[in-house]
């Protein structure tokens, strides 16, 4: 499965969600499909996208938050899985695109290439719903299920280690950050 195909498959449904992504290919590919004000791309601080998503999910239970994470990123914040699981917000879907490598910095293998199982670790941390999928059909079905499932979900999607030719987009970080914050504010006041 290609990550861009997976993103394309869920892109229409993401319109109903608040999305936090990691840096690199995930951010660039989602933007290539079309930026929306409810998308926040965390272009550094690897590992913390899931923590940012947790903070939003805890404070805004009326919104569905989707974190688009990666194997390299979540491996930097495995303790964060236990924090997510402890509070298990029902409005949070945690997607991990697992390409078994640190693609944007030379493609060196991560520990998932030698058998570390992220869904297994999430389940052991206490995340109530976890699954690993290998095909687009499985991915789309599991994602839609998580949106309607009313339970914290970690969905690991095994994807190929390919990405876009460039990672830089024409959306400055701070423009994204302030637009996203304003969007969340407008959703609360009913102007969104």
């Amino acid at each position: 499965m290609l990550r861009i195909d997976a993103l394309r498959a869920i892109y229409p449904s993401l319109a109903r969600c608040i999305v936090v992504t990691i840096m690199g290919a995930v951010s660039a590919e989602l933007q290539s499909l079309g930026h929306r004000p409810g998308f926040f791309y965390l272009l550094h601080s690897m590992g913390l996208a899931s923590s940012v998503g947790l903070g939003i999910a805890l404070l805004r239970p009326e919104l569905h938050v989707v974190v688009l994470d990666g194997d390299g990123s979540i491996l930097m914040n495995l303790g964060g899985l236990t924090t997510m699981a402890r509070y298990r917000p029902r409005n949070l879907t945690h997607i991990v695109f697992d390409n078994e490598s640190l693609l944007s910095v030379g493609g060196f293998p991560t520990a998932t290439a030698t058998g570390s199982d992220i869904a297994g670790m999430a389940a052991a941390a206490g995340v109530p719903r976890t699954t690993t999928v290998h095909t687009l059909a499985e991915f789309t079905a599991a994602f839609e299920e998580s949106l309607g499932g009313n339970e914290l979900t970690t969905l690991v999607a095994k994807v190929e280690a390919t990405g876009p030719p460039v990672y830089l987009t024409d959306l400055p970080m701070l423009e994204n950050r302030f637009q996203f914050q304003r969007h969340l504010r407008n959703l609360r006041t009913g102007q969104g």
Binding site: V20, G47, L48, S51, L54, G55, I56, N77, T83, Y87
Partner: peptide, 26 residues
């Protein structure tokens, strides 16, 4: 008060960032 018990402190930076973007003081 929403109390978030962390496994490691750096997570708290992410959670506070999320809280700020979501419209809360932390």
């Amino acid at each position: 008060m929403i109390l978030v018990r962390l496994a490691k402190e750096e997570e708290g930076i992410g959670i506070s960032a999320g809280a700020h973007l979501a419209g809360a003081k932390s």
